[in-house]
């Protein structure tokens, strides 16, 4: 599923990465512990977190995530957006809690051919 479709359906704010919205999302991962996300998320995932420090960008870049969603109204630090722009990682925002967003992402993706449930490690 195209990232743009998720952004529109979930009414997400696009903080950066407007030019990457045509990329494909194949699944998602929820986590606030970076070593957990490093190990257990997959390439092409959308990552839902409430971490807003710039360290999330290196993780998303190394694991080639399609985008990061900052849940629960978390505001990113300025250097988070700067780094995300440099690494080409879209950062999206919502006031709603991660649980709700994950549920909606799952529902939308589960009708999609590219969706891969679970994790590959």
């Amino acid at each position: 599923m195209k990232l743009r479709h998720l952004v529109e359906r979930l009414d997400l704010g696009v903080l950066c990465g407007e030019d990457k919205l045509e990329s494909e999302v194949n699944g998602g991962y929820v986590g606030d512990l970076l070593s957990d996300v490093m190990a257990n998320s997959s390439k092409g995932n959308i990552w839902i977190t409430r971490q807003s420090h710039q360290n999330i960008i290196a993780v998303a870049s190394l694991r080639e995530h399609a985008a990061i969603i900052l849940a629960l109204g978390k505001k990113p630090d300025d250097d988070t957006i700067e780094k995300a722009t440099r690494e080409g990682i879209p950062v999206l925002a919502t006031d709603r809690p991660g649980f709700e967003i994950a549920g909606q992402v799952y529902a939308l993706l589960s009708n999609d051919r590219s969706f891969r449930a679970g994790t590959e490690s």
Binding site: L33, L34, M38, Q51, N55
Partner: peptide, 11 residues
């Protein structure tokens, strides 16, 4: 900052 799960070396 999201570190300190104690998973790094294991991973």
């Amino acid at each position: 900052m999201g570190f300190g799960a104690g998973m790094g070396l294991y991973n």
